[in-house]
Design a protein around this nucleic acid. Structure first.
Ligand code: ZN
Ligand code: ZN
Ligand code: ZN
Ligand code: ZN
Lengths: 140, 140
DNA sequence: ATCGCATTTGCAACAATGTTGCATAAATAA
DNA sequence: TTATTTATGCAACATTGTTGCAAATGCGAT
């Protein structure tokens, strides 16, 4: 199983909880907040364990934490979990209604040139709005 | 007084608290977190009132809320409080050590063109790192 | 398969951050 | 000055995140 291998190859013990959570995030079509996870695993996984599981995944680069304009944390599966570099410049677009997050094109080199005088660890780029699908829904 | 006028012209009642808070944010050289404000006004202004004062300022565009890579909210005076538009695309750089926030050049038109097919309300761009001044300090 | 050690988990307790309702105080309009 | 509206403080509560520790589980080595 893909997910099991993913855990093993990142020297994370394969527990039922980790399997369930990573599988859930992997198949999710939208970004999940911590409370999304809490309600999904209510009665199964303790809130504190979820925090620790999530943090382990982030450290191993298996999921990405995306912070929206209100400071809310959302988690998505990191399809590029092999590449350890440059992952943190990836711009995203987040629909404020359905929570879907898609990747945007990378910032142009010309722009990065302009700001390269600064010591920059990472750049966060998040565009937000209501996606076409949700906009259509609203009309009804 | 500049600050008093700022409140009046935004139809906010001029109270001692609002004057004190807005003056404090205006003269600050770095972005202030809520707990920064709490400790500064400890014993003078209630925590809840601070939340309400801050929210009022944000609604009136007098200050800007900047969310860092950890989701922490920081507030800075909005020098462009007159312009109501395009304020929310302004990229920023935040020093992780001294908390200073400076403005970065705007995103190139070519990039905005690329993503204009999406419904975008605002774009958040925040670069983070340790500024030159703080990097020097560290060496000592 | 079993043993033993290291890691993970649940639970309780706590800390930090943010919200709401309501009585009182203060600011502005009349 | 008075009346009306708005702001404030306080208490209570909700949400989010952290820590310590005992019990459960995973896993490598027998
Ligand atoms: Zn996959
Ligand atoms: Zn949507
Ligand atoms: Zn000024
Ligand atoms: Zn600095």
């Amino acid at each position: 199983m893909e997910i099991i291998e993913l855990l093993k190859s990142n020297s994370l013990r394969v527990t039922n909880h980790r399997l369930a959570v990573l599988t859930y995030i992997h198949q999710a079509t939208s970004a999940l907040s911590h409370s999304d996870l809490e309600s999904n695993f209510k009665g199964e996984i303790d809130r504190v364990s979820l925090y620790r599981i999530i943090n382990a995944f982030i450290e191993k680069n298996l999921i990405k934490k995306i912070i929206d304009a209100e400071g809310q944390k959302n988690y998505i599966f990191n399809a590029k979990h092999n590449q350890k570099e440059d992952v943190n410049i990836q711009p995203h677009y987040k629909c404020k209604t359905c929570n879907d997050i898609i990747e945007l094109p990378e910032l142009p080199e010309t722009y990065l040139e302009k700001i390269k005088g600064l010591n920059i660890d990472h750049i966060n780029v998040l565009a937000e709005g209501v996606c076409d699908v949700c906009k259509e829904e609203d009309k009804k």
